[in-house]
């Protein structure tokens, strides 16, 4: 009898514990969904509004109707933009700049990160911190001195870089290289030391260790860095606004603003359409590489 009593006592305690744990979990999930939904609404309303606006005519945009509804949907904004040479030029300039910048950034920051993470040389640790500090200097501080430098360079050599789209290939890497180098240092540092030692004993040179071991192993990190570099150069606004002025040299963000706003007349429908179309390439890239990107952001946090 006594033993039965003991069992009776212990059983409900255990059940209560289990139930309270699952209740905790349920509440945690409810709160998560609540805040996630709130955040999703907050983040998705602006693009939705852009989409709605892009499907309206100028007349409907300025009419005092419900702004959240399209009464006479039209694709005229899309057709106009996609058939205008100007917009396609902006798009081409943006694509060229982004592709080149990503390539330049990777060619510089991957070897730099490898050297800083692995080849212990005098001052390498200080240099690594220095690289990161460079990234912390805002572009709003840098554009004037940079502009002055290009002017002086032009005066001295006769090579005019201002108002050429390719000047951005020199300017953007000042933003992308430090950050990508920093990401890659962290990523390379998480690769066990024995792996490069094994490669070196196997007869690999430093360069072969980088290309045949480190780059394949750190591929998720590399993709994360690539996406970052692409996003930065695709969305950059201040530098192209400062360094390029002719319509045929403009990139997309600046092009849309400077050509579709005429004085105080805003071609809202086309602005929204342009912005949406401009957001498409990064979105497509994100969608394809999302898994890698997340792996790239989280890996390196734990060793394994």
């Amino acid at each position: 009898m006594t033993s039965t009593t003991v069992i009776d006592k212990s059983a409900p305690t255990r059940a209560v514990k289990l139930r309270s744990m699952s209740r905790d979990r349920t509440w945690a999930l409810r709160w998560s969904y609540f805040f996630l939904t709130l955040f999703a609404i907050f983040a998705l309303i602006p693009p939705l509004y852009m989409l709605i606006t892009s499907l309206k005519t100028s007349a409907e945009i300025s009419a005092a109707t419900n702004p959240w509804w399209v009464y006479h949907p039209t694709l005229s904004n899309y057709v106009e933009l996609l058939t205008s040479n100007q917009f396609l030029t902006f798009f081409r300039n943006s694509a060229l700049v982004s592709i080149f910048v990503v390539t330049i950034t990777m060619l510089i920051s991957v070897p730099a990160a490898f050297a800083l993470a692995r080849m212990r040389f005098w001052g390498s640790a200080t240099l690594a911190t220095g690289v990161f500090l460079t990234y912390l200097i805002p572009e709003t501080l840098l554009f004037l001195p940079l502009f002055k430098m290009f002017v002086v360079f032009g005066d001295l050599t006769g090579i005019q870089l201002i108002n050429k789209w390719y000047v951005l290939l020199i300017v953007y890497p000042t933003l992308t290289v430090p950050f990508c180098t920093w990401i890659m240092i962290g990523y390379f540092a998480s690769i066990p030391k024995e792996l490069d030692e094994a490669a070196i004993i196997d007869g690999a040179s430093w360069f072969q260790t980088l290309t045949r071991i480190f780059i394949p192993v750190a591929l998720p990190g590399l993709i994360a860095a690539t996406i970052f570099a692409f996003t930065v150069s695709w969305a950059q606004f201040l530098y192209p606004l400062v360094f390029t002025t002719s319509t045929d040299q403009l990139v997309l963000p600046v092009g849309i603003i400077t050509t579709l706003i005429k004085g105080d007349v805003f071609a809202w429908g086309q602005i929204m359409t342009g912005a949406l179309l401009g957001a498409a390439p990064p979105l497509i890239i994100y969608a394809f590489l999302m898994d890698y990107y997340i792996a790239g952001l989280t890996a390196g946090a734990t060793k394994g």
Binding site: P192, E194, L195, E197, A198, A199, P216, V217
Partner: peptide, 11 residues
Amino acid sequence: MVFQNYALYPH
């Protein structure tokens, strides 16, 4: 050389 943590190339 054979290492403690094997140091195999994971890819």
